[in-house]
């Protein structure tokens, strides 16, 4: 398996030991080391649940492993990864909603009660700042949330954000402007 030189040169250093744990060859590990955090963070803030974000990250890189040979390099690899991530987020969200609806229906039929989702893992994930950010992002329109999260990635240009979100760069600018404003207004002053 090999990468177009343009992308392998983005991270010339050998993959970190933690990236080597993901398996695959050195090229794949390099991609994982360079982009896994970005993919996981986007999924986490879009879906709001660490377990789902882990699933998405796993599935995204599994797809990358399978499709790496067919990646033509027409766009930056980060752009390609985010497009896969968004598709996976949509799929997982739909599946999650379906499962939740089934579960709720079962509970109604069985007369059971839903168990609270809180637990040590949840608490560890939702540190104070992260929780406030998640709460604030949840209050934004989905388009605004996505554009803001993508704009936070310094590797992406407006054109690339437009490509990922399938809209014009002007539309991205407008949504980003409104997203910044909405985020600042809603961000809680205290925890």
């Amino acid at each position: 398996m090999s990468f177009p030189s343009r992308y392998s040169s983005a991270s010339p250093s050998p993959p970190a030991p933690e990236a080597q744990a993901c398996g695959g060859d050195a090229s794949f590990q390099t991609v994982y080391a360079a982009h896994a955090s970005a993919v996981y963070y986007l999924a986490l803030r879009l879906l709001g649940q660490p377990a789902l974000a882990e699933d998405v990250t796993h599935d995204v890189f599994l797809k990358v492993f399978r499709a790496l040979d067919t990646f033509r390099g027409d766009s930056a690899i980060r752009t390609w990864l985010y497009q896969i991530t968004l598709n996976q987020c949509r799929n997982h969200r739909a599946a999650w909603n379906q499962r939740t609806m089934v579960t709720n229906a079962d509970e109604i039929l069985e007369g059971g009660t839903s168990s609270p989702e809180s637990g040590p893992i949840r608490v560890l994930e939702t540190k104070e700042l992260g929780e406030r950010i998640r709460t604030t992002l949840d209050q934004l329109l989905p388009d605004q949330r996505l554009v803001l999260l993508l704009a936070a990635d310094e590797q992406l240009s407006y054109d690339e954000i437009a490509l990922i979100t399938e809209q014009s760069p002007d539309s991205v600018r407008g949504k980003l402007h409104r997203a910044r404003k909405a985020f600042a207004q809603r961000f809680p002053k205290t925890a």
Partner: peptide, 30 residues
């Protein structure tokens, strides 16, 4: 800016190590 805040948040949000472990297991069956 909000983007700077999100970037900081991203640096504080590492990928859980179990993702790499799951990926390794999946790739082994490919």
């Amino acid at each position: 800016s909000p983007e700077a805040l999100l970037r900081y948040d991203a640096t504080q949000t590492p990928v859980p190590p179990q993702v790499a472990e799951r990926l390794r297991a999946s790739l082994a069956t490919e």
